[in-house]
Design a protein around this nucleic acid. Structure first.
Lengths: 182, 182
DNA sequence: CGATGCATGTAAGCTGTTACATGATTGC
DNA sequence: GCAATCATGTAACAGCTTACATGCATCG
């Protein structure tokens, strides 16, 4: 009966975007600038039937549509589940440490020759710079949409990416000079 | 033939910690301060047999052990796979945007009443402060171990967490002044 | 010598992905 | 009217987790 993160987010999208189709929900994931889920049909169509069986949403056939499209909206019970999801204290996995594949790889740079290690540091520095620039662009774009929540979210990913970039500069400074540490 | 992230990390641990047992590898995940995988036996025992079949590691029975313990070490081919994993350009999922469940939830705070929204902002602020303090403690602990890579990694999670905390202060300022006194 | 924890391993299940199939709609 | 895309859906699989089973070791 416990909902997964994806189920919660799908429920939240249905709440926010009124009666809407499974495809609309999918598109939120497909179009997300910071994709965490693929928005695959194989995940979402069964998911929406599942939460309907649990009484969190109801659906209604779209009369004029020949392919059996159904429009979903949240029930009071679904609204309750949504509010519980947002009510502190948030569970540890929501607050907890964020995974960072670069940090993971860094632990094993000892496997590289000095030359390869320098290439690693330089390459990642460059890729991080590109990544930060991209997120900055997204933030600009969100500023135009006038949606304060989307803008705040975009600022979040941008700022976290910049912190990561600053951290990696530190890493380069520490590892770049051989025997600078002791 | 393409290795997953967990397979790569396990391979890297075997490289770093010399001939070692599956249980040793498991423990690295079990004891990690920033856990991404559970270190479950069900994942790791089959995994290590799998990468042995691929010729990335070899194993050898520990003579004096009655339970068939085997010690694994990486082969030249495994070393090659490890180096390829670390060679830029890193794939997009390694560089790309970091997921943040708080950011996700923020998009739907509109579902909350003003009072509940205030509780959300205050509660998350407090939880983030605790989280940052914990990561700071881990960084201090790593400073003592004298391992520069572990220290850099701990600094990374700490600094990213602080950036997230600063961002959330911005969020609070934008969405309504919380009673943030602490 | 019995309880507790260390260590190896398996079975089943959950969650989501990729790939495919198919019908409806739209644009040229 | 035909191709491209929109939209719905299913089947098979991948990757990991939880829960269990079991043998060895250690310490009171």
């Amino acid at each position: 009966m416990e909902l997964t993160e994806l189920e919660h987010v799908a429920l939240a999208v249905i709440w926010r975007d009124g009666p809407c189709t499974p495809y609309h929900v999918r598109k939120q994931f497909l179009d997300s600038p910071t994709p965490r889920w693929s928005g695959s049909a194989g995940a979402l169509y069964p998911l929406m039937r599942r939460i309907e069986e649990q009484g969190l949403v109801t659906s209604q056939a779209a009369g004029d549509d020949g392919r059996g499209t159904r429009h979903y909206k949240v029930t009071p019970a679904g609204r309750g589940a949504l509010v519980r999801w947002l009510r502190p204290p948030l569970d540890a996995t929501a607050i907890g440490p964020i995974e960072d594949p670069i940090r993971t790889r860094l632990l094993f740079v000892g496997a590289l020759s000095p030359a390869a290690r320098r290439k690693f540091l330089d390459g990642v520095t460059r890729q991080l710079a590109e990544h930060v620039a991209e997120l900055q662009g997204i933030e600009e774009a969100m500023r135009v949409t006038q949606d304060p929540l989307l803008l705040l979210a975009a600022r979040g990913s941008h700022q976290v990416a910049r912190a990561r970039q600053r951290w990696f500069r530190d890493v380069c400074a520490t590892l770049g000079q051989p025997s600078a540490a002791s």
